[in-house]
Design a binder for these strands. Sequence first.
DNA 1: CACACCGATATTGTCAACAATATTGTGCAG
DNA 2: CTGCACAATATTGTTGACAATATCGGTGTG
Lengths: 224, 224
Amino acid sequence: MAEDGARDGAGLPLVEAIREAIIRGDFVPNQRLVEADLSTQFAASRASVRSALLELTNEGLVERIQHRGARVRAVSLAEAIEISEVRMVLEGLCAAKAAECVTGEEVLEFQSLGASMRKAVADGDLLGYSSLNQQLHRRVREIGGQQTASRVLERLRGQNVRHQFRLAMQPGRPSVSLPEHLAIIDGICAHDPEAAERAARAHLRSVIVALQEVDRTGPPPRGA
Amino acid sequence: MAEDGARDGAGLPLVEAIREAIIRGDFVPNQRLVEADLSTQFAASRASVRSALLELTNEGLVERIQHRGARVRAVSLAEAIEISEVRMVLEGLCAAKAAECVTGEEVLEFQSLGASMRKAVADGDLLGYSSLNQQLHRRVREIGGQQTASRVLERLRGQNVRHQFRLAMQPGRPSVSLPEHLAIIDGICAHDPEAAERAARAHLRSVIVALQEVDRTGPPPRGA
DNA sequence: CACACCGATATTGTCAACAATATTGTGCAG
DNA sequence: CTGCACAATATTGTTGACAATATCGGTGTG
């Protein structure tokens, strides 16, 4: 509460403002999202808020029950694993397609990206590595050219960004994921769709295992 | 036009009514969906129509442009192929998971379903086969228990139901798809996730080839 | 003391009217 | 005859108020 929603003004289209607020963590899971409150906080009409909540519901970020309002959806560990399984096969698909149609220039770009990731891990730059990580996944999607898969992946990303964040902060995690990422890059640069898909799937499988691990060690940062 | 939208009354929640109308083909691709018209046709307020269109937009069934209204989204062949590629990996995932956790009772159900499909093809019952087809895919999703994948698949289904329909009506198509379906069933019943996934992917790959074929022979039934 | 009933409150869902915007048709100049 | 400015129209986007519904607190009774 107490946020006066200064940042939106008329710049971003409200739905993005709320989405960012949820992803950033301004709204915690299970927090109620009352239409009237949001309309004042974001200086928008209730109808706009309503339509934004509709959109975010379909994106899986908020949950609505008839006559009972909207709340920030709390994705359980089981759901996070499901999402990662879907990501596994979809990113595998994108990696395979990227390996097929990658250009020479893009190969160089990927290799440079790989080098940067290596360096970030060596330097212990967690934040930089996380950013490069996202960049890699995004580029694979873009180059794969599978817009349908990209849209789905983009939506899923928002849903377990919280779990993803916990993973990235896990000590020792980068040294595990780095070789997996490099394998994806290698497969794509070698124009080997099957290798790229295998590598992408292996990476996500590893993410799933890590999710289960991190849950066993330290339960949720903020209990529901 | 000229439909007075008799069927909805107060039974189904409007959004489903419009969705069914689009899927059924009452509204053809690229047809404009004017809010005022729909509100009279379906005897609902414009606000309700508006929110329904919002929802359907997020489902990918309609397309909206700022201040220019909504139209039924026409999915191109390229998009249909993309969708089928996504289906390929997701149904592969579901089939694999189904193979892992299928019960003895469900094995019998699948085998019975396979027998029915065989019979329908032998009898030349296109409609019955199409129905069994959908039932098979649905059961695989349900038993796989991957709700995230299921939701995505369900949404994608609505988008290329038109292309799917054209395929089903293609002469000779059932004899091609039947063994593919049976292979999926066999893989699941054998509790062999890899075989089930391979079979599911092979099936969808065949669907993609068939989509390209049917486009080459007979372009769209109703040009955009 | 526990439990069902009932009214008060908060919140969503719906509606009708108004403003903003894009499209279309018309008239005029070149 | 063609191209452009401009008004008329059609349609969406927004606002505010109203009705429907669920939740919460109190009250009475077994």
